Amino acid sequence: FDIYVVTADYLPLGAEQDAITLREGQYVEVLDAAHPLRWLVRTKPTKSSPSRQGWVSPAYLDRRL
């Protein structure tokens, strides 16, 4: 999967189903980028939180090589 970094805090609107909150600087794996406005991502697990999966706007993501 492609690795992206979150460029700004992402707080989903209440109406968005299956969306997750992301923090600036967080790394995520993009699982599904087929839709231009919503990408399915999975967060990297940390010592304090397990990995999470949900939909985010790709405008908040920047690809890492």
Rank of each mutant, 00 (worst) to 15 (best):
S51K: 04
Y27G: 03
Q17N: 11
E16K: 06
V56D: 01
P36V: 05
Q17K: 14
P58R: 04
G25I: 01
V56H: 01
P45E: 12
L13M: 12
L31W: 02
V28D: 00
L65Q: 13
A8N: 07
D9M: 05
V56N: 00
Y27F: 12
E16D: 13
V5P: 01
Q26V: 06
W55F: 09
L61W: 01
T43L: 07
P50M: 06
T46H: 07
Y27P: 04
T7V: 14
P45Y: 05
P58D: 01
R63T: 08
K47N: 13
R52A: 12
Y4T: 02
L40Q: 03
L13E: 14
S48F: 12
E16Q: 09
R64P: 15
F1Q: 08
E24C: 14
V28P: 00
Q53E: 13
S49N: 11
G54K: 01
A34K: 14
S49M: 12
F1D: 07
L13T: 14
K47D: 15
V5G: 02
I3F: 08
G25E: 01
R63D: 06
E24F: 11
L61R: 00
V41G: 00
D32A: 05
S48K: 10
D32I: 08
V28A: 01
A8L: 08
I20E: 03
Y27V: 13
A34C: 13
P45F: 05
L22Y: 01
L13V: 12
V41Y: 01
P36H: 07
A8T: 09
E24R: 15
R52G: 06
P12A: 08
D62C: 13
V5C: 08
P50I: 07
S49D: 13
D32G: 02
A59G: 07
E24L: 10
L61Y: 00
S51G: 09
K44F: 15
W39Y: 03
R23F: 14
P45M: 07
D2H: 10
P36Q: 06
V56T: 04
E29P: 00
L65E: 14
R64N: 11
S57Y: 04
D18M: 07
L31E: 01
W39A: 00
V30G: 00
I3S: 05
Y60K: 03
Y4V: 03
R42P: 01
S57R: 03
T43G: 01
Q17I: 13
D2M: 12
W39M: 01
S48V: 10
A59H: 10
G25K: 02
R52T: 12
D18R: 05
E24A: 15
S48E: 14
P12W: 07
S51V: 10
F1N: 09
G14A: 15
E24H: 10
G54T: 04
Y60G: 04
L13K: 11
A34L: 09
H35I: 04
P36C: 06
L22T: 01
R52K: 15
A59N: 10
P36F: 04
L31S: 01
V30K: 01
L40I: 02
E29Q: 09
L11H: 13
L65I: 14
R42T: 03
R38E: 04
Y4K: 01
R38S: 07
R38A: 06
K47C: 14
E16N: 08
L65N: 12
Y4A: 07
L22N: 00
V28K: 00
L61T: 01
G25V: 01
P50N: 06
W39T: 00
V56G: 01
L40E: 03
R38H: 07
A15I: 12
A59T: 11
T21N: 09
W39R: 00
D32Y: 08
G54F: 10
L31Y: 02
Q17D: 13
L37Q: 10
I3C: 14
L11A: 10
K44I: 15
Y4P: 00
S57F: 04
V28G: 00
V28R: 00
P36I: 05
T43F: 05
D9Q: 05
Y60I: 09
R64C: 15
K47Y: 10
P45Q: 09
P58F: 02
S49C: 14
D62V: 14
D32Q: 06
G54Q: 03
D18V: 04
E24I: 14
I3N: 04
A59L: 14
T46S: 10
A33T: 09
W55I: 03
E16A: 09
A33C: 15
R64Q: 13
E29H: 07
P50K: 07
Y60E: 02
L31H: 02
A59F: 08
K44Q: 15
L31G: 00
P36T: 07
E29Y: 14
Q26D: 14
R23G: 04
Y27M: 11
D2T: 09
S51N: 03
Y60V: 10
L22K: 00
S49R: 09
D32E: 06
V30S: 01
L61M: 03
V41Q: 00
L22D: 00
V6C: 12
E16H: 09
L40A: 01
R63Q: 11
L11I: 15
Q17C: 12
A15M: 12
Y27K: 06
V28L: 03
L37R: 07
P12T: 07
P58V: 05
I20G: 03
V6H: 00
H35K: 05
Q17V: 14
P50E: 10
V41E: 01
P36A: 08
L22A: 01
Q53L: 11
V41P: 00
L40D: 00
R23W: 13
A34G: 11
P45R: 08
Y60W: 05
L65S: 13
E29A: 05
L31T: 02
D32V: 07
L13A: 12
